[in-house]
């Protein structure tokens, strides 16, 4: 164990300051978010544990991790869309409303679409196949605002324009749209209510690289327009392209939050898991992290990554606290 050197400490202080400053004008402020699933037979699945982060207007935070690490559950918790056997604790404040404590009525009337917009994973499945894009947009306008027919038409067209959906395609049915256009139509739906927080759940899975880049860039544009964007993805390239900060999730916990330029840059992430994830990329070392993530229903006492970690010691039998954006006993020191 080495004490962080002087420059490291300066960096940490700077990070803390940034985080504190952000908490003030955060669009979303998540504290100690925990989700448990109770299964038949008394098993408990620790899907998300103690997630802490803030998200400011104009900022894009990418939440990355392996499949089954709990990132989708976190997104569902923020939308109040968890199944009945889920138990949540902690807070997730947006605009004075705690998303975790709000009842279904509040969520339906004041949150979904109005404060939080969802950009879905498979846009084609997200759209009703038997109705045109325009009628679906107008229906959403009607559900969110009480406006007349003409205003509704205008609002729908505005939303389409903001999502770069061509006006000439508004009267088409979803199956007549290409994958990229379907994605924009779904994004337009998410934008209608003027939500300040956009939640994108694996928006690029299964898309071609070109389409991934375009979709990501469009999402980035919405962040630049002053929205907060939470991008949930396992696609590190997409995260690198648009994220300001990267949060790495492992076995239900956020293990590192770092500025994207540091995370993807020559300095690299500090948590061994995050390093392993990056090194698995074909453009880097292309070597997998050995082993597999632990079962969320049988997590070890200590650091959940220790069994796969090249740096693990006896110290890792106790769980490292999450401080200054990192939860690790043996963080990699930033390279000079």
């Amino acid at each position: 164990m080495n004490a962080p050197n002087a420059s490291g400490q300066r960096l940490l202080r700077a990070l803390d300051a940034v985080t504190a400053e952000r908490a003030e004008d955060a669009v979303l402020s998540v504290r100690d978010l925990t989700v448990r699933f109770r299964l038949r037979g008394g098993r408990t699945v620790a899907a998300v544990t103690g997630a802490d982060f803030d998200l400011a207007a104009g900022e894009c935070l990418a939440l990355v991790g392996e499949s089954g690490c709990g990132k989708s559950v976190l997104a569902s918790a923020l939308l109040g869309l968890l199944p009945g056997n889920a138990e949540t604790s902690g807070t997730a404040l947006t605009d004075g409303i705690d998303l975790l404590a709000a009842d279904e009525k509040t969520l339906a009337r004041t949150v979904r679409g109005r404060r939080v917009g969802l950009v879905p994973q498979s846009p084609a499945a997200h759209l009703t196949p038997v109705r045109t894009v325009r009628s679906q947009l107008e229906e959403t306008v009607r559900a969110l605002t009480a406006t007349g027919r003409r205003a509704r038409r205008k609002a729908a067209e505005d939303a389409a324009e903001r999502a770069a959906f061509p006006a000439g395609h508004l009267d088409r049915y979803p199956h007549e749209l290409s994958g990229g256009l379907a994605q924009r139509a779904a994004t337009a739906l998410a934008l209608i209510g003027g939500a300040r927080l956009l939640l994108a759940d694996e928006p690029t899975t299964g898309l071609d690289r070109d389409l991934v880049d375009r979709t990501a860039d469009e999402l980035r544009r919405h962040a630049d327009d002053g929205r907060a964007l939470l991008l949930i993805t396992h696609d590190l390239a997409a995260a690198e392209r648009i994220a300001d900060r990267v949060a790495v999730m492992y076995a239900g916990r956020i293990v590192e939050i770092a500025p994207a330029h540091r995370f993807f840059g020559p300095t690299g992430p500090r948590h061994p898991y995050a390093r392993g994830l990056l090194n698995a990329l074909p453009e880097r070392e292309f070597t997998p992290i050995p082993g597999m993530p632990p079962e969320l229903s049988a997590l070890p006492e200590g650091c959940a990554f220790a069994p796969r970690c090249p740096l693990a010691t006896e110290l890792c039998a106790t769980r490292p606290a999450f401080t200054a954006g990192l939860a690790c006993h043996h963080p990699e020191r930033p390279r000079a």
Partner: peptide
């Protein structure tokens, strides 16, 4: 056929290996 399109980087690398 697109064996790793749905998978994260580490699993992709493991399957290719």
């Amino acid at each position: 056929d697109e064996m790793t399109a749905m998978l994260d980087a580490s699993t992709t690398a493991a399957l290719v290996a």
